[in-house]
Amino acid sequence: MVKHGLDPAQLTRGERMDTSALRERREASDRFLDIATPQLDQLFRLVGLSGCSVFLTDAKGLVLDQRCGDGDESAFREWGLWEGADWSEGAEGTNGIGTCLAEERHLIIHRDEHFFARNAGMSCIDAPIFGADGQVIGALDVSSARADQTEGFNKLIAASVLQTARQIEADAFRAAFPRARFILADAEDGPLVKLLAVDSDDIVVGATRGARRAFGLAPSGPIERRPATDLLGRDESEPTGFERGERAAVIRALSRADGNVSRAAQALGIGRATIYRRMKRLGIGERDA
């Protein structure tokens, strides 16, 4: 790789970060790790018995956390894919983690597609994780040490990796706006999480990477505060995915409140007058509950 001055035949591996420095990097990402932990556990329960290990990195490709079976530990340690290791493209050339972060997309790097010949025994399935500000905060990796790992099996695992990365991203977004109400687009609408965070005045205060792209907002950083209805297109003849999600949320709240509008408004964290306005805009009658 000319860009990074790497030799594909190089046998030596980069040194792992020492324990003290790794602890500092983990502490800097402690909130991210807390949110991701249950999802990593769940994903490993799904793929661990097939010889796969699960890794979570920060935005620079440093491995922060992992789940690995006892029988596979020696293989991954030998490859250098372990906590404290740098798997950015600058360190390892083309590889699942580094290339996923560099290109900001989910991908599969199968065996000899790796840049270094010494990594050709691995199959790596990766997906980026975006933070509440729209920037990449890490990568989720599932790598296999099995020589019989097929490309077809990789594709099956890839769906679970992407779904888990999206769930971590959604959980991190919700945690970033603890007092907000959230509007969700259709779950099957593309590979990115599409969530809007809306305050009690129906002003959009946050948007995931997918929502930013869908509504033409700034790809990263703070977003311009604007009424949710300005983004949701209330004058369109057909409701958007967000409108369908909002309508479903209001109807659920009314149902749980046995049709009591005041209780439904309280459950949604909005005023009684606000919920009546939304019901009128969304075509919801009290009997719809």
Rank of each mutant, 00 (worst) to 15 (best):
L49H: 15
L49K: 15
L49P: 14
C52Y: 12
S53G: 10
S53I: 10
T57P: 08
T57A: 09
V63M: 07
V63L: 14
V63E: 06
L64E: 10
D65C: 01
Q66M: 13
C68P: 08
C68D: 05
G69R: 05
D70F: 03
D70K: 08
E73G: 05
E73L: 06
S74P: 11
F76R: 07
R77S: 10
E78G: 14
G80S: 02
G80L: 01
L81P: 00
L81K: 00
E83Y: 08
G84E: 08
G84I: 06
A85V: 01
A85C: 03
D86H: 03
W87Y: 07
E92P: 00
E92I: 00
T94C: 05
G96K: 03
I97R: 13
I97G: 10
T99H: 08
T99D: 05
C100H: 02
E103I: 13
E104K: 14
R105P: 15
H106D: 15
I109T: 13
R111F: 00
R111G: 05
E113K: 05
E113W: 00
H114P: 03
H114W: 01
F116I: 05
A117F: 04
C124K: 06
I125D: 06
I125M: 07
D126P: 04
P128W: 04
I129L: 07
I129C: 04
F130A: 09
F130N: 11
F130D: 10
A132Q: 13
Q135W: 11
V136W: 12
I137Y: 15
I137M: 11
A139K: 10
A139H: 09
D141S: 14
V142D: 04
S143K: 02
S144W: 01
A147K: 05
D148H: 06
D148Q: 03
Q149W: 06
Q149N: 09
T150G: 12
T150P: 10
G152L: 12
F153C: 13
F153S: 12
K155H: 13
K155M: 10
